[in-house]
Design a protein around this nucleic acid. Structure first.
Lengths: 174, 174
DNA sequence: TTACTTATTGAAATAAACTTGCAATTAAGT
DNA sequence: ACTTAATTGCAAGTTTATTTCAATAAGTAA
């Protein structure tokens, strides 16, 4: 909410700056890129589900993105090929098929990211509170913490969402 | 979103079950309870800001709650004493004064919690994906991880949001 | 290919969360 | 008590996401 006001332009255009981290991510993605479409076909087969142009296009677009993006962003990028409603519906489907993961960076909009085969979608983000630049983070804490918490409170299938927030180097200057 | 459909009643009533953890939290809160109002007065003084009934009431209500609650929930609890808009505005003010913290559990609604003097608002939650029960978590990972990430990417003032999700013991049965 | 079945889409309406503008109110200094 | 301006309430407006339903198109079988 705070950055929404302070940097409307950045939010509107959904700018996501490039740095070493993201370039790396981009390379990693383009490798598994066409594999995702095969995955889509495989998962849809024999399930009263259909392989449609919007679904393929959204998956392809996500494959090219370095960071989680909003439904609105996808719709704009696809400019006219399908309705925003279809984007929402497709993302929900792709999520249910574990091809896409949903993120929330605290600005009241959901972002979606392709689940890469390497980390199974489990990684975290470092977000600049000023300009909303996103950096992908590989590090994670010791998984024993999770199982300890699960055991302590009698929960099963415990997972976690972890995001880091701060001020990036270029925003520190200004 | 998924639990929204599966358990509409739980979400509607904003049910938050009681267990050992939450009872503990309640006790801890009621101690610092009146201290928060003093805090409010101190922070508002000499700043062209006013101590108003809605602000006091919201702070008092949050002091009695064990878990983050929505603006809507606060408005309903306060039943008619002030408008929902005022709740939103007050929460924003209280947040800016570091008296309240904003949380996002991935269901498209913001929840607010009083920042306790003991942990300075830094703690995490374990949320049941089925019934939305919330448990307060004291554990956190080694802070060196945070500084490492900050340094690596040239970020300053790095903080984090960490939430755990799973299925609670009573939902496992059903 | 053609026909058939039904999942999927688009468009409009709806819902929910949150914000904004403005006149009326009220807290706080004098 | 008077004055000033911060705050509130109400109505209207945004934004994000979902639902309804007729039209479309994907997959299957002849």
């Amino acid at each position: 909410m705070i950055p929404k006001k302070t940097f409307p332009a950045a939010r509107l255009k959904n700018v996501q700056h490039i740095n070493n981290q993201t370039i790396f991510a981009k390379v990693a993605h383009s490798h598994s890129h066409e594999h995702d479409l095969i995955d889509l076909r495989a998962k849809l087969r024999g399930k009263d589900r259909r392989i449609t142009k919007p679904r393929e296009e959204i998956l392809e677009l996500l494959g090219k993105e370095d960071h989680p993006v909003t439904a609105k962003f996808i719709h704009e990028k696809l400019s006219g090929t399908c309705d925003l409603v279809t984007v929402y519906r497709s993302l929900k489907l792709l999520e249910s098929m574990s091809l896409v993961k949903r993120f929330n960076f605290g600005d009241n909009t959901t972002r979606f990211e392709l689940i890469s085969s390497t980390d199974h979608g489990h990684h975290h983000h470092l977000i600049c509170k000023a300009c909303r630049t996103v950096v992908e983070i590989d590090e994670c804490f010791d998984p024993s913490m999770e199982s300890k918490i699960a055991k302590k409170h009698g929960f099963h299938n415990v997972t976690h969402e972890l995001e880091f927030f701060g001020i990036c180097s270029s925003c520190q200057a200004t």
